[in-house]
């Protein structure tokens, strides 16, 4: 069990929690001013000894703070899924930049584009891009799955069931993907050797 020891005596330990929660209200004598001194003195009789700590009062000794480990996101499966989901933003950034590079390569002419295609076809690059694609798919699935929670659609006062919202989102994704794939196949394919009849 790890715990912060002396930190609590001088207020919440910022170094380990990174937080600055206000100290418990009664600790710093906010109540002390209202309670007659006799009662404080009284409290010291017949009670067990308290660890030396100048901030302690009899009735509000010390609050213990459990530190948050830097690896809090490894705590359970859902936290891990969450951090992976958040990290897919890097894949989005990469894809956006690569799109831009792709456009530039196209714009600079057939040689430049061919060189870029050759780079794309290198096994290591393909493997990396498969990984990027997996991350992008993970982004898509997690993003669309959360949509029903963020969107409260009401039709004639009744909430549209989240299953419908979910299905609508996934359907939109599939439909849009189909359009993109068809458009690209049309543009990419050599008219002579079109992959479709």
């Amino acid at each position: 069990m790890r715990s912060r020891e002396e930190g609590a005596a001088t207020g919440p330990d910022r170094a380990t929690t990174g937080s600055d929660r206000a100290p418990p209200p009664a600790e710093a004598g906010t109540r002390g001013g209202e309670i007659p001194q006799e009662l404080h003195a009284m409290g010291d009789r017949g009670a067990p000894p308290v660890q030396e700590n100048p901030r302690h009062t009899r009735y509000h000794p010390k609050w213990h703070r459990q530190p948050t480990p830097l690896t809090w996101w490894t705590r359970n499966r859902r936290y891990r899924a969450f951090i992976l989901r958040e990290l897919t933003s890097v894949a989005v950034l990469y894809a956006a930049v690569l799109l831009l590079i792709h456009l530039l390569a196209l714009d600079r002419g057939p040689e430049s584009h061919a060189a870029f295609q050759a780079w794309l076809a290198r096994p290591g690059v393909v493997a990396f891009h498969l990984f990027v694609l997996a991350a992008l798919l993970y982004h898509t699935v997690t993003w669309l799955n959360l949509a029903p929670q963020a969107i409260a659609l009401r039709i004639r006062g009744r909430r549209v069931p989240s299953r419908i919202v979910l299905l609508a989102h996934h359907f939109a994704w599939l439909a849009l993907s189909a359009i993109i794939v068809a458009g690209l196949l049309f543009a990419l394919g050599d008219p002579g050797e079109a992959p479709w009849p």
Partner: peptide, 19 residues
Amino acid sequence: AALVLPALAGILWIAAPLG
């Protein structure tokens, strides 16, 4: 990103370069 990127990435950077 959710709606368009997987399709774009799949075609442009996986399917096309692999021939």
